[in-house]
Computed example of a mutant assay.
Amino acid sequence: MLAVLGVSDKRSIEVLAGGLLDLGWDVVATEGTRRAIAEAGLSVGAVSDLAGVPTMLGGRVKTLTVSVMAGILARDAEPDLSELAEHGVERVHLVACNYYVLPAAASSMDQFREKIDVGGPAMLRAAGKNCAHVVPLCDPDDYAGVVAELAAAGGSPEGVSQERRFALAAKAFEVSAAYEASVAALFRSSTG
């Protein structure tokens, strides 16, 4: 089982990463998230290894790669699994992602635009879309409950119920919609 972690809000990330590692999962994380996990005394892989390319453009491109997105969007169906194997892409079973915090007001358009998260929303939306096969997490308050469900199922992602997955997907899309609305509002406020 493979989890991809890339969070701005690092609360309880050690609970999630540690729980997954204890259950025998492979865990990869973006650079900042990986540092926070290391500060908690845990070791996880780099998302750049999964992506097959290093973080690029000053950190603006980390997860927007075919390898990461195909791993998230793959279903537990033979055609998908065969295609992943053919291209050496690893299947992703859990995504934990929350976005950069936007400024309250756009003091500088360049600074504001730099804070707009692109890869995080893409990953979280993909996990939400594919919630029948991937556990989408965007709220640190959900980490312990999901780890408990996984533990009760011996670490299997199937231990997270469909009902819980749909609730997590709904939350992911609510967070995404609110984030997009905030970005739009900041653009509108800057045109005065």
Rank of each mutant, 00 (worst) to 15 (best):
V4T: 07
V4S: 00
V4F: 05
V7M: 03
K10Y: 06
R11T: 01
E14Y: 02
V15H: 02
A17M: 02
D22V: 02
G24P: 13
G24F: 12
V27Q: 07
V27L: 08
V27P: 10
G32W: 08
T33C: 00
T33N: 02
R35E: 12
A36N: 09
A36S: 04
I37H: 04
E39Y: 02
E39M: 09
E39L: 09
A40I: 03
G41F: 10
L42D: 02
S43K: 12
G45S: 13
A46K: 13
V47N: 03
S48Y: 11
D49V: 03
D49W: 14
L50W: 14
V53W: 08
V53D: 03
T55C: 03
G59R: 14
K62M: 01
T63H: 05
T63Y: 03
L64G: 02
L64Q: 05
T65Y: 08
V68Y: 09
V68D: 05
M69L: 15
A70T: 12
G71N: 13
G71V: 04
I72A: 05
A74G: 11
A74D: 08
D76Q: 07
D76R: 12
D76W: 11
E78C: 07
S82M: 10
S82F: 05
E83D: 15
A85F: 15
E86M: 15
V89S: 14
V89N: 15
V89W: 14
R91D: 11
V92Q: 07
H93M: 13
L94Q: 04
L94W: 05
L94C: 11
V95T: 09
V95G: 01
A96R: 00
C97K: 02
V101L: 07
L102P: 15
A105K: 14
A105F: 13
A106G: 04
S108F: 12
M109D: 14
D110I: 13
F112T: 06
E114Q: 13
G120V: 02
P121R: 04
A122G: 07
M123Y: 09
M123K: 10
M123I: 10
L124P: 09
R125V: 01
A126R: 11
A127P: 14
G128D: 09
G128P: 12
K129L: 11
K129S: 01
N130G: 07
N130D: 01
C131Q: 06
H133W: 15
V134G: 04
P136F: 01
C138L: 00
C138D: 06
C138E: 00
D139T: 01
P140E: 04
D142A: 01
D142P: 01
Y143S: 00
G145Q: 06
L150S: 06
A151E: 05
A152Y: 09
G155V: 11
E158P: 00
E158V: 07
G159P: 11
G159Y: 12
V160P: 08
Q162F: 09
Q162R: 14
E163T: 08
R164K: 10
R165Q: 03
R165D: 06
F166E: 04
A167P: 11
A167Q: 04
A169T: 06
K171A: 06
E174P: 07
S176G: 07
A177H: 15
A177C: 11
A185G: 15
L186Y: 13
L186D: 12
L186F: 13
F187W: 14
R188M: 13
S190R: 09
G192P: 10
